[in-house]
Design a protein around this nucleic acid. Structure first.
Length: 322
DNA sequence: AAGACGAAAGTGGTTGA
DNA sequence: TCAACAACTTTCGTCTT
């Protein structure tokens, strides 16, 4: 066999050729590689993109038959952060046989022996890997229970990898860190879930989760946009089976109250709840404070306080407005 | 009777000395 | 590290519909 490419996914056909060894500034890992299908230089350890818009200098092969299109494909399976080895690891078999089942020559055999030894010594089977495997299954469970879409799961998995590299998991429970990364990922993608909701779905109490979350933000220097009450109302409104009219009105109310400075320092959940309450009354689809408080996971008192402010400052007369 | 309201005391997190 | 503080929660009694 004289194939020049034995990378498992086939994506590295011309990669690594003359590129100088480079360490990742983020995690120090030396597994930086060229991803020519995306034109990026990526750290294999944490996923950091070091540079992008690089040019694929490989031959412009075209495929004329299905056979060729297979062998000349420049892409492999997508790297997935939710699979603990990103779905890309190479496994060296323990049998001393080649792919057709023949015994290996003595020189080849000792070569394979060395490779196998180093593979085992390398991080492939390290504690990080076992940790990741466990974490990813927990992530999968948690995310599907909360109905979190794939892209957010992937982001969460990426954050978890980083937190392992930064040694944040040591001394903390895997579950707590997984939940924290998931919560963070949701917020980063502007699909926030209440902390309580995430805490309930995992077996982590809210306090621990909050601690892990803050640690995550601090250690990884992540900037998370302040959660906007507007991001919640779609979900809340559908849980309360309110019409889209009410949703629109709620958004208007929230925008107005932001202009009035009513939103500073206030719990976004409470604001969302109060705005929904007002809008539901305005449009004659009234829900009780308790119902709304329940889906928003705040107390009736909070709904009431925000509601009072809203009515007062915005000059809304809920009785006469229709 | 259910829902809304309001007061008072308690809780957990943030801030500044 | 600690106290002060703001926002929120819990609890409970009262008023309104």
């Amino acid at each position: 066999m004289d194939r020049t490419n034995d990378s498992p996914s086939g994506r590295g056909r011309h990669s690594q050729s003359a590129s100088e060894p480079l360490n990742c500034p983020e995690c120090g890992s030396s597994s930086v590689h060229e991803d020519l299908t995306r034109g990026e230089r990526v750290c294999g350890g944490c996923g950091l993109v070091l540079s992008d818009h690089r040019i694929d200098t490989g031959a412009e092969w075209r495929a004329f038959s299905s056979d060729e299109s297979e062998t000349r494909s420049r892409v492999g399976a997508p790297a997935r952060y939710t699979v603990h080895d990103k779905g890309l690891s190479t496994i060296i078999d323990w049998r001393d046989r080649d792919t057709s089942g023949r015994k290996l020559s003595p020189t080849r055999r000792s070569e394979i022996y060395r490779l196998r030894k180093w593979q085992i010594r390398s991080r492939v089977h390290s504690s990080m890997d076992r940790n990741l495997a466990q974490a990813m299954s927990e992530l999968e469970r948690l995310a599907s229970q909360l109905g979190i879409p794939k892209p957010i799961r992937e982001l969460s998995a990426l954050l978890y990898r980083k937190s392992i590299i930064h040694k944040l998991v040591r001394g903390r429970s895997i579950e707590a860190m997984v939940a924290a990364t998931l919560y963070a990922a949701c917020r980063i993608r502007l699909k926030p879930r209440p902390l309580d909701e995430v805490a309930d779905a995992s077996r982590v109490d809210k306090k621990k989760l909050g601690q892990c979350y803050r640690l995550l933000l601090r250690s990884l220097n992540i900037k998370v946009p302040l959660s906007n009450p507007v991001d919640y109302i779609g979900r809340f409104a559908s849980e309360l089976s309110l019409s889209s009219k009410v949703q629109l009105r709620t958004v208007e109310l929230l925008e107005k109250s932001r202009d009035f400075g009513l939103t500073i320092g206030r719990d976004p959940l409470g604001l969302a709840a109060a705005a929904i309450y007002v809008a539901s009354i305005m449009l004659d689809e009234r829900r009780t404070q308790r119902e709304i408080a329940e889906v928003a996971r705040v107390t009736e008192v909070t709904v009431r306080n925000r509601y009072k402010e809203l009515v007062l400052k915005l000059g809304i007369d809920t009785i006469t407005q229709v």
